[in-house]
Simulated assay, not measured.
Amino acid sequence: MLPKLHAAFGAAALLIIATFWTATVTTIVIGDKYLIVMAKTGIAWGLLALIPMLILTGVSGSQLGQNMRGALIGAKQKRMKLIAFNGIVFLVPAALILLPLAMQGQGGPLYWAVQTLELLAGAANITLLGLNMRDGLRLTRRRALTA
């Protein structure tokens, strides 16, 4: 049961981050300030879903990997540290900084610098979570073959 929960938590986290990233890019391309504010508001509130999913993914992954060794487990653990670092240092602060700036209609240098940083860190986390999902599927297949 734990492997399925871990996969669900990880998939949900990846989907939420990808949705945030896509909403940001889409509203920037459209250029409507109202839509940008709506996206930034949704992202800020969405943190209430994303953060627990990432925590649950990390905790369940730690439990699953507790007695496992190997390159795939090591790679997943290193990536999770980077994902957490990006989230805590860049993504959550960026979301909370961008919302009031967007609400004030400010699109100046500070806004665009933080927005660029958020998009880069978000793309990195999407990539890292995707790689972890790929490696998790490989581990699941290996376990099924040896069982």
Rank of each mutant, 00 (worst) to 15 (best):
L117T: 08
I36Q: 12
L119V: 06
L117I: 09
G58H: 00
V89L: 14
L50Q: 03
I55R: 06
G46E: 12
A49R: 03
G105A: 11
L64N: 01
I73D: 00
R79S: 13
N67I: 02
L50E: 07
E118A: 15
Y34K: 13
E118W: 10
G58C: 03
W112R: 07
R69E: 13
S60T: 15
L64F: 01
L47R: 05
M53W: 03
Q106E: 14
A75H: 10
L117V: 10
G65E: 01
I36S: 00
I88R: 02
A39S: 15
G46F: 05
A102K: 00
I36A: 08
L98I: 08
I36L: 14
V89D: 01
A44Q: 08
G42H: 01
V92I: 15
D32S: 11
S62A: 14
N67G: 05
L35H: 06
W45G: 10
Q115Y: 04
K78Q: 14
I55T: 13
G46Y: 07
V37N: 03
G107E: 05
S62E: 10
I97S: 03
Q77A: 14
G74H: 07
T57P: 04
L117C: 06
G42C: 11
E118D: 15
Q77W: 03
G65P: 03
M68H: 06
K33D: 10
K78L: 15
L64H: 04
V59P: 01
N67R: 08
L91A: 03
A95P: 06
Q77E: 14
A95L: 06
K33A: 12
L91T: 02
R79F: 03
Q106K: 12
M53E: 10
A44H: 02
P109D: 13
L64E: 15
G42Q: 06
M53L: 13
G42A: 12
T116R: 02
N86C: 12
L56A: 15
E118V: 05
Q106F: 11
Y111K: 01
Q106I: 12
L101H: 00
G87F: 12
L72D: 15
I97D: 00
Q66V: 01
G70V: 07
G74K: 12
I73Y: 07
G74D: 15
L96N: 09
F85D: 02
L96M: 13
L48A: 14
L64W: 01
A75N: 11
L119G: 03
E118G: 08
L117R: 00
N67E: 11
I88G: 11
F90Q: 04
G65D: 02
L48D: 08
G87Q: 00
L119Q: 07
I97H: 02
A94C: 09
I36R: 05
F90A: 13
M38A: 14
R79L: 05
S60H: 08
A44T: 11
R69S: 13
Q63A: 15
K40P: 01
G74V: 04
I43Q: 11
A75Q: 13
G107Y: 08
G74R: 10
G87L: 04
V89S: 04
T116L: 13
P100R: 07
P52F: 08
A49P: 00
L50V: 10
R79Y: 08
A44K: 05
M80Y: 06
L98M: 09
L48H: 07
A113P: 02
A44F: 00
K40L: 08
G108F: 09
V92G: 07
E118P: 04
G105I: 12
G105Q: 10
G107S: 09
Q66Y: 10
G46K: 04
